[in-house]
Deep mutational scan, measured.
Amino acid sequence: TYYTVKSGDTLNKIAAQYGVSVANLRSWSGISGDLIFVGQKLIVKKG
C-alpha cells in the first residue's frame, strides 16, 4: 500500500494510523531520518 504524505503529517501519525512502527515505516520506504515531504509516497505494509 502506498500512502501519500499530506501537509501536517508526521511519521508518528502515519505509523499510528496504520498500526505499524515508525522503524518499519522508515525501512519499507527507505527513509533514514524523520524528514518527510508533502507529496512523498511511503510504502505501508499492514500487519
Rank of each mutant, 00 (worst) to 15 (best):
T1C: 15
T1G: 10
T1S: 12
T1N: 12
T1A: 11
T1E: 14
T1V: 14
T1H: 13
T1L: 14
Y2G: 06
Y3Q: 01
Y3G: 02
Y3N: 00
Y3W: 04
Y3D: 02
Y3M: 04
T4W: 12
T4Q: 08
T4C: 11
V5R: 00
V5A: 04
V5T: 03
V5H: 01
V5S: 02
V5N: 01
V5Q: 01
V5L: 03
K6Y: 04
K6D: 04
K6A: 09
K6S: 07
K6I: 09
K6T: 08
S7M: 14
S7N: 11
S7P: 15
S7Y: 13
S7L: 14
S7Q: 14
G8R: 04
G8D: 07
G8C: 05
G8K: 05
G8H: 06
G8M: 05
D9T: 01
D9A: 01
D9K: 00
D9L: 02
D9G: 01
D9Q: 01
D9I: 01
D9V: 01
T10Y: 03
T10L: 04
T10F: 04
T10W: 03
T10E: 05
T10K: 04
T10P: 01
T10H: 04
L11K: 00
L11N: 00
L11R: 00
L11T: 02
L11C: 04
L11A: 02
N12Y: 15
N12A: 15
N12F: 14
N12M: 15
N12Q: 15
N12H: 14
N12C: 15
N12P: 13
K13C: 11
K13Y: 09
K13W: 10
K13H: 10
K13A: 13
K13L: 11
K13T: 15
K13V: 09
K13F: 10
I14L: 07
I14D: 00
I14N: 00
I14M: 01
I14Q: 00
I14Y: 00
A15C: 06
A15K: 01
A15Q: 00
A15G: 06
A15I: 02
A15T: 02
A15M: 02
A16E: 14
A16G: 09
A16V: 11
A16S: 11
A16W: 10
A16R: 12
A16Q: 12
A16M: 12
A16F: 10
Q17C: 13
Q17K: 13
Q17I: 13
Q17N: 10
Q17D: 11
Q17E: 13
Q17S: 10
Q17P: 00
Y18Q: 07
Y18H: 12
Y18A: 06
Y18K: 04
Y18D: 00
Y18V: 09
Y18S: 04
G19K: 10
G19R: 09
G19A: 09
G19E: 09
G19L: 07
G19Q: 10
G19P: 01
G19S: 09
G19T: 05
V20G: 01
V20S: 03
S21I: 05
S21M: 06
S21A: 07
S21Y: 04
S21Q: 06
S21P: 07
S21V: 04
S21E: 08
V22N: 03
V22R: 04
V22W: 03
V22I: 11
A23F: 07
A23V: 10
A23K: 10
A23E: 15
N24F: 08
N24G: 06
N24C: 15
N24V: 12
N24T: 13
N24P: 00
N24Y: 07
L25M: 06
L25Y: 00
L25C: 03
L25T: 00
L25E: 00
L25V: 10
L25H: 00
R26A: 09
R26C: 12
R26T: 09
R26H: 05
R26V: 11
R26M: 13
S27L: 15
S27I: 14
S27K: 14
S27E: 15
S27N: 12
W28V: 05
W28F: 05
W28R: 03
W28T: 05
W28C: 04
W28K: 02
W28M: 08
W28E: 04
W28I: 05
W28D: 05
S29D: 02
S29G: 07
S29Y: 03
S29P: 02
S29V: 05
G30E: 09
G30R: 08
G30I: 05
G30L: 07
G30C: 11
G30A: 08
G30W: 06
G30N: 12
I31N: 03
I31E: 02
I31T: 05
I31Q: 03
I31P: 02
S32I: 14
S32Y: 10
S32P: 08
S32G: 09
S32F: 11
S32W: 09
S32L: 11
S32C: 12
S32N: 11
G33H: 08
G33K: 06
G33R: 05
G33C: 09
G33A: 08
D34T: 08
D34R: 06
D34C: 10
D34A: 08
D34V: 07
D34Y: 09
D34I: 07
L35R: 12
L35A: 14
L35F: 13
L35I: 14
L35T: 14
I36M: 05
I36K: 01
I36F: 06
I36T: 03
I36N: 01
I36E: 02
I36W: 03
I36P: 03
I36D: 02
F37P: 03
F37N: 08
F37Y: 14
F37C: 14
F37H: 11
F37T: 11
V38P: 13
V38Y: 05
V38N: 06
V38T: 08
V38D: 06
V38Q: 08
V38A: 10
G39D: 05
G39E: 03
G39H: 04
G39L: 04
G39Y: 04
Q40W: 06
Q40T: 06
Q40P: 02
Q40N: 04
Q40K: 03
K41R: 14
K41Y: 07
K41S: 09
K41F: 08
K41L: 14
L42W: 02
L42I: 12
L42V: 08
I43R: 10
I43F: 11
I43V: 13
I43P: 05
I43D: 03
I43S: 07
I43A: 08
V44S: 02
V44W: 04
V44G: 02
V44Q: 01
V44K: 02
V44H: 02
K45D: 11
K45Q: 12
K45M: 13
K45N: 12
K45P: 10
K45C: 14
K46C: 14
K46W: 15
K46Q: 14
K46V: 15
G47M: 12
G47E: 14
G47K: 11
G47C: 12
G47D: 14
G47F: 13
